[in-house]
Nucleic acid binder design. Sequence first.
DNA 1: GCATATATCTTGACAGTGTCAAGATGATCC
DNA 2: GGATCATCTTGACACTGTCAAGATATATGC
Lengths: 193, 193
Amino acid sequence: MSDSYHHGNLRQALIDAGIRIINESGEDALSLRKAALACNVSHAAPYAHFKDKEELIGAMQESVTEQFMKELEDAVKEAPDRENALVMMGRRYVSFFLKNPDYFRFLFGNRSISAHLMPDADPGKDYPPFVLLKKTYLDYLKENDLQKSAKEQEIELLKLWASAHGLAAIACMSGVVPSFDWEEMLKGDILLR
Amino acid sequence: MSDSYHHGNLRQALIDAGIRIINESGEDALSLRKAALACNVSHAAPYAHFKDKEELIGAMQESVTEQFMKELEDAVKEAPDRENALVMMGRRYVSFFLKNPDYFRFLFGNRSISAHLMPDADPGKDYPPFVLLKKTYLDYLKENDLQKSAKEQEIELLKLWASAHGLAAIACMSGVVPSFDWEEMLKGDILLR
DNA sequence: GCATATATCTTGACAGTGTCAAGATGATCC
DNA sequence: GGATCATCTTGACACTGTCAAGATATATGC
């Protein structure tokens, strides 16, 4: 039923509308009421699906993160070996946010991300992109018969992650982007020490 | 005149009040009206000094950035040579935001920062911390008689900056902080490749 | 010293926001 | 077919950023 009393899949529609609003008018323009209006639904309808504005934002972040994860998984799949996989993951990490600069602030400029998606005390709830990086890194060690202490592994993982994340941050947040050929730079040795 | 009609230095008082609010209750709790109330002034008084809420936030960011810069300058001063200066700058970069996690999101999670403080097309208006990093790096090259092409320099600078910024981001935004001894880690070789 | 101009602050209003309570509507299950 | 429950609407509230009009203090010119 397209215009019946019940919407059918309002929850997902609100998530999609919210993401569309952010892409079109930036995050400041996002409001529950506008998202509801975009779904042809009254201003309080979202409260049947989200207890909070923050909870909607959290769901939107999960959706964008899934998109992000697909790119990283593609990078791993396309790589001939695990060492190349690590480099290509870094490139995709940066280029994904280069293609969608608004997503960077949306994912990492909000408080709610830490509760939902960032590494936590609970290891089962780790940030998915980091879990994939860790798995790929461990495969890389195995593939090349490299022995590292737990501490060394921890440090190298952090370095990989931090360099990709830091570059993405600089690329997205600074005005340096236009005067800078990031794509070419990513082909060089800027990633992976 | 302490409680006369005119405040005396409302502009600075609003900046200080705003920063205090962020430290005590987070950025979401910041509003022009609360900042005005904290200064014993009516809700529209700020408009005599800032055209916008964004303009107040910009001024607050400048103030916090000055604080940040002092730490980086101290790191450079205390270092015995320029190579150590680079390492210590990185450590201070991370530990400053580790001490004030709310500042990280406030400085880099907002749109306005790019207009005011981030590297720009105009080279004279570069982000002050990056200018200091660049100067220290060039001094380091000179001190050690190292010749690098402009492109190599650009890449190495970006790597230095990105690793420090990325680590700070991870430290501030993830729940990993409590289970992680950042201070000890920063003493290791995690910075400077 | 005084009138005028200017900067600063107050009051009052407006639309937009997140959120809640009460009730209407439709689907589901026995 | 009637009761239960999830979903949606309507109406209200306090809070927000912002503007216009007016009040007040300071500065300026004579």
